[in-house]
């Protein structure tokens, strides 16, 4: 029971709420909440992603190319931003993070296995 002190923490944060209309990142202070900052970042990343997808990629005889990998990395960054800031993993208990990371790693291994085993015939 020792790690349960959420609401008390919530109360003590009350005083800090006034500062929530701005946040500091890399030494610069922005005049809007960090949530909005994350949203702007997400939007920019999405635009980059969609633009990349319009680059002519030729015939994909092979499974994956450089642009595809960059887009996947951007998607992972976007997902991490949402999870970290919007889902409050930056403030919450580490066990929440574990309950996200462990199954994610598990399914990545599983999907990789499914992808590399010979399809169909074996």
């Amino acid at each position: 029971m020792s790690d349960i002190n959420h609401t008390t923490e919530g109360h003590s944060k009350e005083a800090a709420h006034d500062h929530h209309d701005q946040f500091t990142f890399l030494g610069r202070t922005f005049p809007f909440p960090v949530y909005t900052g994350v949203f702007i970042l997400l939007a920019i990343l999405t635009i980059i992603e969609v633009s990349l997808s319009q680059v002519p990629r030729g015939d994909l005889g092979h499974a994956m190319d450089f642009i595809g990998i960059i887009m996947l990395v951007l998607a992972v960054i976007k997902a991490s931003l949402v999870v970290w800031f919007y889902m409050h993993l930056n403030k919450d208990s580490r066990i929440f993070l574990a309950s996200l990371i462990i199954p994610t790693l598990l399914v990545i291994v599983a999907v990789l296995f499914l992808s590399i085993v010979p399809a169909g015939g074996y």
């Binding site: 499974a63 994956m64 309950s99 996200l100 399914v107 999907v111 499914l114």
Partner: peptide, 26 residues
């Protein structure tokens, strides 16, 4: 969070089916 953990797996099963297809039939 635990419920979402199980959702991760169920979505991954479905997306995984697509990924395997994408891998072999780009």
């Amino acid at each position: 969070w635990l419920y979402l953990a199980s959702e991760v797996v169920i979505f991954a099963t479905m997306i995984g089916v697509f990924i395997v297809f994408r891998f072999h039939n780009p």
